[in-house]
Amino acid sequence: MSEYKPAAPMTARRRGRRGVSPALRGERSVVRGLGVGLLWLVVAISIAALVWMVAQAFRDTRAILDDPWGVPASLDFGNFVRAWTVGDFAVATWNSLLTTVVSSVLTVAIAAPCAYYLSRVDNKLTRGLSLYFILGLGIPAQVILIPLFVMLNKVYLTDSIIGLNLVYIGVSMPFTVFLLTAFFRSLPLEMEEAAALDGTTAFGTFWRITLPLAKGGILTAFILQVISHWNETLLALTLLQSTEKYTLPVALISFVQQQTYSGADWGGLFAGLVMVVLPMLVIYVWLGRRLTEGLTLGMGK
């Protein structure tokens, strides 16, 4: 596995490639043309599916079933209102929002100093610690599910948003520490050394030099946590039992399961799906490049 290489030269290379080498654009075969066509088809279908889903959320169930290809006749928020009130999505959205933001902020706040230490001090202990953190990357959630439930039950933290937050923070440590360690390693050391020469303490260099330099990486780590905590389902499903504690995915599952008894309310269901997907779309459109770069940076190793 090769070392992570900082992104800057990569993008420069990518940019420089266009136009420079005719060798790259030489071939025009049928297979290739077909492939390009297929790819655009995939893109078109993906976008259409997303638009379709949002459109259906504004139609009532009968209209959806009669003609699933139709477009909404008017901007009717009835589905959302019903999902919001009957499906308990209002509370669930609030819970999801709270859990996501709090746990993501704390995850990054706790992981960043740790990653900084592991990236700057190189000895047997830190190498061992890095390995210890990486270990967690390979442990699937279902392994810790039952013991976690038992443990939290003992201290009355099941069915509690605080408990869920704690779990999310603990579970996110391996990835965040791993990502930020790689990121801190890619930062130049000169500024820190200059600051140290000027008499800044070790903590001071971290707080006043490295953190401001690492803003981008930290934001990326934060957003990645927001995405994974917003979508996390299995742990929330296990740890939360009462409706007023549900997060959005759990509320969605219970909404789906209610339908088995009360008849399908596809309108409300589509509204629920949109509530789950739309925040992710907003984040992606807003910070998309940072995200893909962050993910591939973490994976470059």
Binding site: I110, A111, P113, C114, L129, Y132, F133, L135, G136, I139, V143, I144, P147, L148, M151, L166, V167, I169, G170, V171, M173, P174, V177
Partner: peptide, 12 residues
């Protein structure tokens, strides 16, 4: 980070 990770991940 070590404590949280150990208590909530490794111990379980």
């Amino acid at each position: 980070a070590f404590v949280l990770y150990t208590v909530l991940f490794i111990v379980p």
